[in-house]
Simulated scan of single mutants.
Amino acid sequence: MALNSVNTNVGAMIALQNLQVTNNELSQVQNRINTGKKVSSAKDNGAIWAIAQGQRAEIGALNAVKDSLQRGQSAVDVSLAAGESVSDLLIQLKEKALSATDTSLTSSARSALNEDFKSIRDQIATVVDNAAFNGVNLLDGSSTGGFAALANVSGSTITVASQDMSLSGSVVTLGASSEINTASAATASLALVTASIDNVGASLAKLGTGSNSLGTNLTFVGKLQDALEAGVGNLVDADLAKESARLQALQTKQQLGVQALSIANSSTSILLGLFR
C-alpha cells in the first residue's frame, strides 16, 4: 500500500523525473534543428565527431591541391598560347628565309626581306619573355625544373617540364643575330628555322599533354572533395523531417508531463479531507 504523506510525494518525484527526461530530449532535438546536425560537438558523439573532423581536414587540404593545380594549369596554358605564337612567327620566318635564298634578288629587295626577318625574329624573344604567369615562365629557360603542382594531400606532385623557346635555345635553334642578308646566310637560317618549327611542335605537344594531366587531376580532386563532403554530411547531418516529427511528439509529451506533475502535486491536498 502506498504511503500517504505530505513530506514525501513519490508520484510527483516520478513525474518530475520523466518530465526532465522529456525536456532533455526536446533540447537535443531543438539543437539538431537549429544547427542542422545530429553531431555538432564532441559530446554528441565523440567517435563520429572525430571522424568528421579528420575528413574536414582532408577537404581543406584538397583546397590547397586544387589551388596548386589551377596555378599550374594557368602557367602551362599561358606557355601554350605563347608557344603557338612562336610557331606562327617561325612559319613567317621560313617564308622570308626561303625567299631570300633566291640569288636573283636585288640588293634592295634582299635588304627589305632581311629587315622583315629581323623584326619577326625579335618578336619571338618578346613573346617568350612575356609568357609568364604568377612569376612562372616555362619558355625562357628560367624554370629549369618545370612546374611541379600538388597532386594530392600527401604532397605528391605532377611536373610539367619547361620548354626553352628563347632564341639560340634548345628548342628554337635560330640565333638572336641570325639574318638573311646574303643567299648563303638565308640558306643557313632556313635550315635553323625549319628545325625550330619541328622542335616547337614537339614542345607544344608536351605542354598540351601536361595541361591535360593537370586538368584531369583537377577534375578528380573536385569529385573527391564532393564525395568527402557528402560522407561528412552522412555522418553528422540531421534528418530534419524526422526531427520535426519527433519535435511534435516531444512537445506533446512535455505537456502531458506537466499535467502529470500537476496532478501528483495536488494529490497531497486530498489528505486535508481526512481531518474534517
Rank of each mutant, 00 (worst) to 15 (best):
V86D: 03
S203F: 00
G83R: 01
A75V: 05
T173V: 15
N130C: 05
G175F: 04
S108N: 14
A109W: 11
M165W: 02
I180C: 12
M165P: 12
A132R: 00
D198R: 01
S74K: 03
S79C: 09
L80V: 13
K118M: 13
V128P: 07
Q92N: 13
A109T: 15
D122V: 04
S85P: 08
S108H: 12
E179I: 15
S108C: 12
S142E: 08
L113R: 03
A132D: 06
S156M: 08
A82P: 03
S99N: 14
N137P: 10
L105F: 08
E115D: 15
S168C: 07
A82V: 01
D102C: 11
A195Y: 00
A82Q: 00
S168G: 14
T173D: 10
Q123S: 14
S178D: 15
T194W: 12
S156D: 15
S156L: 09
G175S: 15
Q123R: 02
I124D: 02
Q92P: 07
Q123E: 15
I120E: 06
S87I: 09
S108I: 14
G201I: 06
K118I: 14
L204D: 09
L207V: 05
N114W: 04
I197L: 15
T182Y: 06
E95Y: 12
T182N: 14
A161R: 00
S87Q: 15
E179Y: 12
V171I: 15
D116R: 12
L90D: 11
A149S: 15
L190V: 07
V127G: 01
Q163I: 12
A191R: 07
L113S: 13
A125T: 03
V86F: 00
A131V: 03
S168L: 09
K206G: 06
L98K: 06
E84W: 04
L167E: 07
V160C: 11
T187M: 14
A185F: 11
T126S: 10
V128E: 04
V86A: 04
T173A: 14
L139T: 01
A185T: 06
A149D: 10
E84V: 08
M165H: 01
S166Q: 13
L113W: 05
K206W: 01
S168T: 06
A202S: 08
V200P: 05
T182C: 06
A97C: 09
S99G: 07
M165T: 04
R121M: 11
A109P: 06
D140S: 13
A195I: 02
K206Y: 02
S203I: 01
V86H: 00
S79A: 15
N130T: 02
T101L: 10
G72F: 02
A125F: 02
S203W: 00
A82G: 04
A112G: 11
E115N: 14
G141P: 10
T144I: 10
D102A: 09
N199E: 09
V171R: 00
T187I: 12
S178E: 13
S87M: 11
K118A: 06
G169Q: 07
V76A: 11
V76I: 13
S189Y: 01
T144L: 12
V193P: 08
G201F: 03
L89F: 03
N114H: 05
D102G: 09
G72I: 03
S196E: 07
T182A: 09
S143E: 11
F147I: 13
L150T: 03
L204I: 08
T187Y: 09
A112W: 11
Q123H: 02
S74E: 10
N152G: 08
A195F: 01
T101G: 07
K118P: 05
A205R: 01
A125V: 03
E179W: 07
S177Q: 08
